Amino acid sequence: MHRGSCLCGAVRFEVAAPLHAPDACHCTRCRKTSGHYWVSTDVLRKDLTIHGAEHLTWYQSSPRVRRGFCATCGSALFWDPPPDREKIGVAMGAFEAPTGTQLGIHIFVADKGDYYEITDGLPQNAQ
């Protein structure tokens, strides 16, 4: 069982499955959402339990994706594709340690900020 929360603790969650290697998304939307780049892992919706969901606010960031934030402290927690997909992205920074996983890939690196370099040797996808 993996547990996590927002900064203030109003939204807590549990994932009842091993975590997959997360990806680091460098697209403009993820950078603006997180303030840097977004790192998340996809989990099956059936394995995710959210406590304090009444404190979540959802923002439709594109026609097909919404993002979940704590309405109290503003923590970015979820990247939610259409509900017909069986997985939802959960922010790695919101998990309690240990997560038992390591970053697996960088995506949308063509959009990355000009103020940093990616030098960890992991695979990089332009889009």
Rank of each mutant, 00 (worst) to 15 (best):
T57F: 01
L77K: 01
G104A: 11
A16W: 00
F69D: 02
T101K: 01
A126Y: 01
R45L: 11
V15N: 07
G35N: 07
G4K: 02
V11C: 10
H26V: 05
P83W: 04
T101V: 15
G9K: 04
C70R: 02
I107Q: 04
P123Q: 07
R29V: 14
I88P: 03
L7E: 12
H2Q: 11
F95G: 03
T101I: 13
G9I: 05
G4R: 03
S5Q: 15
C70M: 09
G9M: 05
I88S: 02
A110N: 13
H106D: 06
V65D: 07
G74R: 08
T41A: 13
W79V: 07
L77R: 00
L48E: 07
F95E: 02
G74C: 09
H26T: 04
C30E: 00
Q102G: 09
S61G: 11
A94Y: 02
L19M: 07
L44N: 14
D111P: 00
E117M: 05
V15H: 05
G52P: 04
A76H: 13
L77H: 03
A53C: 04
A71T: 07
A17H: 09
G35S: 06
L7D: 10
H2R: 10
A16E: 14
A71K: 11
W79G: 10
C73M: 09
C73S: 08
R85S: 10
V11F: 05
V15Q: 05
L56V: 10
T119Q: 11
S5V: 07
G121W: 07
T33W: 08
A16G: 09
I105C: 12
P83I: 09
L48H: 04
C70T: 08
S75A: 15
M1N: 11
V11I: 13
P123G: 06
E86R: 12
R12N: 12
A10N: 12
P83A: 14
D111A: 12
N125H: 14
D23M: 12
G74M: 09
T99W: 02
R66F: 02
Y59D: 10
R29W: 00
S40D: 08
A24N: 12
A10M: 11
A97K: 13
I118C: 09
L122D: 08
Y59H: 14
I88K: 01
R29F: 02
D23A: 11
K46Y: 00
L122W: 07
L103Q: 11
C70K: 02
A71G: 14
R3H: 15
V43H: 02
G121V: 05
I107P: 02
A53W: 04
M92Y: 03
D47F: 05
M92W: 03
R64Y: 10
Y59G: 01
L77Q: 05
Y37H: 15
P82R: 11
P63D: 13
P18I: 03
K112Y: 04
P82N: 06
G74I: 10
V65L: 12
R31N: 08
V65W: 00
T41V: 14
E96M: 08
T101P: 04
A71I: 00
Y37W: 14
D114Q: 11
T57L: 10
R67A: 06
T99S: 08
V65T: 13
G35C: 08
S40E: 09
V109E: 09
D47A: 15
S62K: 09
W58V: 07
R3E: 14
T99D: 02
N125W: 12
I50S: 06
L77V: 04
K46A: 15
L122V: 07
H106Q: 06
